[in-house]
Design a protein around this nucleic acid. Sequence first.
DNA 1: GTCTAACGTGTCAGTCACTGACGACTTTGA
DNA 2: TCAAAGTCGTCAGTGACTGACACGTTAGAC
Lengths: 203, 203
Amino acid sequence: MSEKQPGLRERTRRAVTAEIAASAQRLFVERGFEATTIDDIAGAVGMSQRSVFRYFATKEDIVLGKFDLVMEDMLTALRQRPPGEEVWTSLRHVLDVLISASEAPDKQALVEPIHRLVFETPTLLAGYLQKLQYMQDAVVVLLQDRAEAAGRPYDTADPAPRALTAAAFGCLLAAQHSWLASDAKSTFADAVDRAMATIGPRA
Amino acid sequence: MSEKQPGLRERTRRAVTAEIAASAQRLFVERGFEATTIDDIAGAVGMSQRSVFRYFATKEDIVLGKFDLVMEDMLTALRQRPPGEEVWTSLRHVLDVLISASEAPDKQALVEPIHRLVFETPTLLAGYLQKLQYMQDAVVVLLQDRAEAAGRPYDTADPAPRALTAAAFGCLLAAQHSWLASDAKSTFADAVDRAMATIGPRA
DNA sequence: GTCTAACGTGTCAGTCACTGACGACTTTGA
DNA sequence: TCAAAGTCGTCAGTGACTGACACGTTAGAC
């Protein structure tokens, strides 16, 4: 059992990370993202500004950081789809990972306010879109690999896989808007379904 | 002739703005966006840092600023489409405005390097995506107005118009990638056509 | 033509996100 | 038990940006 647990060091690190994120997000939701300084956050958790930056690379990351983990899961999910599956279908299943992640029961109460925060704060929106874009880059690479493995590779400059991917993620954003517009009354998954039903690949 | 010309003041303002943009973009392409400071730019055009910020709100804006004008034109173009036209068709025509704007003969030589700069610089990519997102917000509003005027309004939380719009702009991004991947050999308009041919609205 | 109000500019000081370096303290593992 | 490694606060510094002030220029009324 050389690797039994994450180790004490790693555990405390995660605990501190979570505590900073929790305090910061509360402040962000209360006062707004821009109006909250790193010093405010550092003060709220009783540490120095420098130490906050030892846990989060940027202020943005305090809000958007956990997204990276979800994105990893999404890529893993895509890799596990059957190679011959319709691209559009695979993409729908990839989004399912994000959906279930945002339905995590632990802090359900924060999901909607954080969502709104991201869409209402220009900086955060930009960062979120950027992350989604890089995610799409990774997805496109996987799709290209998959097509090549199936014996019908895409041309190097073929915009098709990226167009499909971008459309799917566009549906995600449309669904998020729709979900927020309905005051989170309907299911998020339902919004994604409705969005993805409006467009699709051409035969 | 009370409003003959933009006036001397306005003219010099535009000239200085253009000069700063030209110098800055040269530096950005040479050294990279992050590696170029505002002081560098100010020095290159012989003015103070403070004055540069009197012409551009942010460093990002020096690169992405003119985009706002193109976006205005795109919205105007959308307003002039026939109200009964297929949404997807209208969107294709909206993108035409951007295409012809990037084919402007004046500084054709800069279009490709700037394009690459934006896609290779995380900050600029984020800012670009953010602008495109706000553009989509405006497009969606117009589409909703149009549908309402035609007597078949969208439901408030209907993700359809946003999904279609997002898909169209996703095709734009896919086309830009494809265009850059082919070393700008093919036409940009052609790349957009190919991207938009892969997906479309469902009956 | 003159005068005044508006405008453009440089300078200075300040905020905020972020980074590197250092020294003190704590934990880990041989 | 001791040395390597990790954590932390402090300090100093950079770079994007902002507000305030004083100075010179210019536009436009008269």
